[in-house]
């Protein structure tokens, strides 16, 4: 099986700009490998380095050392991003545009032909159930609606690899189910999905493999069954792996 996404000994240090010049190590030699056609869950507690990893893969943060590759191309080359779709965490899209205009703008960035553009935009708006709001400015959208615009925007180029940073955050149960359905559908179409999440229940149902990181280090990687072996469920295994001690009950 071909490797679609790969990091090798990835290390990222953030240097603070104050006079002490303290450095914060966000990733410590991370090795990851995501293969073609799998749905890969990227787990870890808050501040573990999930977003940082994605930021390196997308070229926003230069690695201190080590490399990242997409489709075998070093992430420092913009061309590595031609076939990916990315959903960032908490983004406020251009408020003054409508969803339709936003998608059209991104479609132009990908250089899609006009006929193809219209077809995709209509389909995507239907997919994320925003047809009724397509002609309203995004500033009038609820949080969940904005998240769904984000998902539509990540799919505009019909990507082979999706990088989704907490795709279900801010969504109601119905919305979450829809996102799970969309991920499932993408998988059936042969796409690769790499996403981070705190919802271990949903990770259990849709992921082929998962990785757990903690304080910038890879702690476990494998199928859900492998990781939760010997534990009640994935959540218990996760808590054990990140070293969570249940606190004694208060008197």
């Amino acid at each position: 099986m071909t490797t679609i996404l790969q990091t090798e000994k990835l290390r990222v240090e953030y240097r603070s700009r104050d006079f002490r010049q303290t450095t914060k190590v966000a990733l410590v030699g991370l090795d990851l490998e995501v293969r073609a056609g799998e749905v890969f869950g990227f787990l870890g507690p808050n501040g573990a380095g999930k977003t940082t990893t994605m930021n390196v893969l997308l070229g926003f943060v230069p690695p201190t050392s080590g490399t990242g590759r997409l489709f075998g191309i070093d992430v420092r080359q913009p061309i590595a991003r031609q076939r990916i779709g990315y959903l960032p965490e908490q983004t406020y899209y251009y408020k003054f545009l409508t969803a339709e205009e936003l998608l059209r703008f991104y479609a132009k960035i990908f250089g899609l032909a006009y006929a193809e553009m219209d077809k995709r935009i209509t389909n995507l708006l239907k997919l994320v159930e925003l047809e009724h709001a397509a002609k309203r400015p995004i500033k009038s959208y609820s949080k969940g609606m904005q998240q769904r615009v984000g998902l539509a925007q990540a799919l505009i180029n019909n990507p082979d690899l999706l990088v989704l940073d907490e795709p279900t955050s801010g969504l109601d149960p119905l919305g979450r189910m829809k996102v799970r359905e969309i991920i499932q559908r993408l998988k059936n179409e042969g796409k690769t999905v790499f996403f981070s999440s705190h919802e271990l229940g949903e990770v259990e149902t849709i992921c082929d493999r998962v990785a757990i990181i903690h304080q910038g280090e890879l702690k476990a990687v494998g199928s859900v069954a492998e990781i939760s072996a010997g534990h009640e469920n994935l959540e218990k295994a996760f808590l054990k792996i990140v070293g969570f001690q249940p606190s004694p009950l208060l008197p």
Binding site: L58, G59, F60, P78, I79, R81, Q82, I84, Y86, L87, P88, Q90, T91, Y92, Y93, Y94, K95, Y106, I109, F110, G150, Q153, A154, N157, V163
Partner: peptide, 13 residues
């Protein structure tokens, strides 16, 4: 607004 991220994630320099 962090729109720079979805933008630069696309093939634009």
């Amino acid at each position: 607004a962090r729109t720079i991220f979805p933008l630069l994630a696309k093939p634009v320099s």
